[in-house]
Design a protein around this nucleic acid. Structure first.
Lengths: 337, 337
DNA sequence: ATAGGTCGTCGAAGCGCTTCGACACTCTCT
DNA sequence: AGAGAGTGTCGAAGCGCTTCGACGACCTAT
């Protein structure tokens, strides 16, 4: 293992000079810099992370807490995680992966031990038990999601309320009057997950404004659950012609079932999804959808944290504006004779 | 920030005593231990990670390198990642998330800086450029996947060759003679990804033994690509009655297309998948499948590393035996009159 | 009773880095 | 020509922890 001191000796300068070459925190003459850089390369020097963290009180690590459940929003989570890791690297940070399993203890542990300089939390509940801890520390943090009370916190999220409204507006403009909403699994609503509830508010609010009839049904993913849910919907509202789906694992089952029942998409019923673009474009019918900008969210969260760590910027709630892309799954409502 | 010294003072002992209470590396009287533990709790002490790493030359971090591509095997990757994180925590380790983007440089950086004590690599190519680096260091590592030459390395993987053979055996036993294999995207084969090629070897070998006709077609995910591929298959081999699918994002499109063409599963054609159980059970037809034991793989990799870090055990190739679960997508071959 | 163990604790060294103050220079401005 | 203001470099302190050797205190076997 090569140390700073060895590099210094090799280059014929003092250790502090090498350190300043590395950090750029003091000016160094061009010739010295070159000599040092040459030595670093020649010896294959890598600064020791622990020593650096100890001396500078900075680990250059950002912690990312992902939900333990692997059964839900997997593509979104993965995309966010990768975006976080990639963005962090471009700013010189590494990413520590925490699972939700440890809950608040993980926050305490990471904060207390100086393992990470900052923290990103995903899968935030409206009234998340980790939030008081975050407010009580001076360690920067960012949430991906929006809790009930975001004061004193940095949050990045899609504006799901607007997304809900947008979907409904699109269906309404096409003449649909009876809309069914296929939501996430009931457990998601029971946990009071922000995005699910806010979407619903957006949908309901706009439905009221436009005088549409709205039926919301949570749904476990998968074919069988979807079959039951769909049967109930048509039972209760036979005139349903528009669907809004916010549940990745219900998308394909829904399409398959509609097809099977002889209801053509988009001729007989229209479907709008709120999901990552990839899901929308790979479905058996290319779906009109509001994209969940997973990468963008991950990137923004990291950039906020880096800014805060550099002493720039403060808390802020960033709600990304939803965009609706029209594809092949929506069309004019059928004219009932 | 509370330090060891403060805890020591509070408990009326020396710093080293507190350290030994924490590590258990020397015997400590029960009364002293209690007093120290009480102080730790009272002061809310967390050992500083950097200082610990510097002094002990151990970071208690395991690096996990995941592929950058988020478009492929997402659920598997995610499951492995979560299993790695969870298992690592139970052994007192944290997980550093690296993306494949940096490639070999990441290996050098992490190894050189002492950021992590060990490393797990996913998405291993048969002739992966990171392997020489791993062999050249004394830092323990584990691969999830199997390269062409695993000598001097620890590898954990499903025995894909056996998995391929198993699928074919099952179809053969049901009387199918003409089998089509829907593979991963062409790029996966071009990269010489181990699992894809080994599956193919297993399939071909058993096909030869049993005298079956085998047609292998790589396939991009999604509905449209699958439609093209399927058309070609039936064009070339109209008598095809058995399918083996190794491509998560081709599963649902395949089922939809077969249904659409009036080919009933399993009455007219049988489908066996190689995929995580979750995909198999959530599909519109519950799929007979060989499970990719993602969690098990993640867990095993971590446990091997922990053992190596504790000075137990050495390099080893662990090939998990495949298990085929019969569900609703396979049945006897139709008798051609 | 004394030599030899074991047990529990302490002090001090040191891990590899960052950073502060100091110091010798070289410029500029008057 | 001398004061003042940079520049570029160095030495030393110290970050919070682990770990080694040392040392009493107590126990056992001779």
């Amino acid at each position: 293992m090569v140390t700073l001191a060895e590099v210094a000796q090799h280059a014929g300068v003092s250790a502090s000079t090498v350190s300043y070459v590395l950090s750029g925190k003091r000016s160094i003459s061009a010739t010295t810099r070159q000599r040092v850089e040459e030595s670093i390369r020649e010896l294959g020097y890598h600064p020791n992370a622990g020593a650096r963290a100890l001396a500078s009180n900075r680990s250059n690590i950002i912690a990312l807490m992902i939900p333990l459940r692997t059964d839900i929003y997997v593509p979104v989570m993965m995309e966010i995680a990768v975006a976080v890791a990639t963005t962090a690297r471009t700013h010189g940070y590494d990413v520590l992966l925490l699972t939700g399993e440890e809950g608040p203890d993980a926050v305490r542990r990471v904060t207390g031990s100086g393992l990470a300089d900052a923290m990103i939390l995903m899968d935030v509940q409206l009234d998340d038990e980790r939030l008081p801890l975050l407010r009580g520390t001076d360690q920067p943090s960012a949430l991906i999601g929006l809790p009930a009370d975001p004061s004193g916190l940095t949050c990045v999220d899609l504006d799901f309320r607007a997304a809900g409204a947008l979907c409904l507006g699109h269906l309404a403009a096409l003449g649909h009057r009876d809309i069914a909403v296929i939501g996430e699994a009931p457990a998601v609503y029971e946990r009071h997950t922000g995005f699910a509830e806010r979407t619903l508010e957006g949908l309901r609010g706009r439905a009221r404004e436009l005088g549409l009839r709205l039926l919301h049904r949570p749904c476990e993913g998968g074919y069988d659950a979807m079959a039951v849910t769909l049967a109930r919907i048509f039972d209760e509202r036979p005139g349903t012609t528009g669907f809004v789906v916010q549940n990745e694992s219900a998308v394909e089952p829904l399409l398959a079932l509609l097809r099977q029942q002889g209801r053509a998409v988009p001729e007989d019923v229209s479907v709008v999804a709120i999901c990552p673009d990839q899901v929308a474009t790979q479905a058996s019918v290319r779906l009109t959808s509001v994209a969940v900008p997973a990468q963008e969210m991950g990137r923004r969260a990291v950039e906020h944290l880096v800014a805060k760590l550099d002493g720039r910027g403060g808390d802020e709630v960033v709600l990304l504006a939803p965009e609706l892309t029209v594809r092949a799954s929506t069309g004019p409502a059928p004219t009932t004779p």
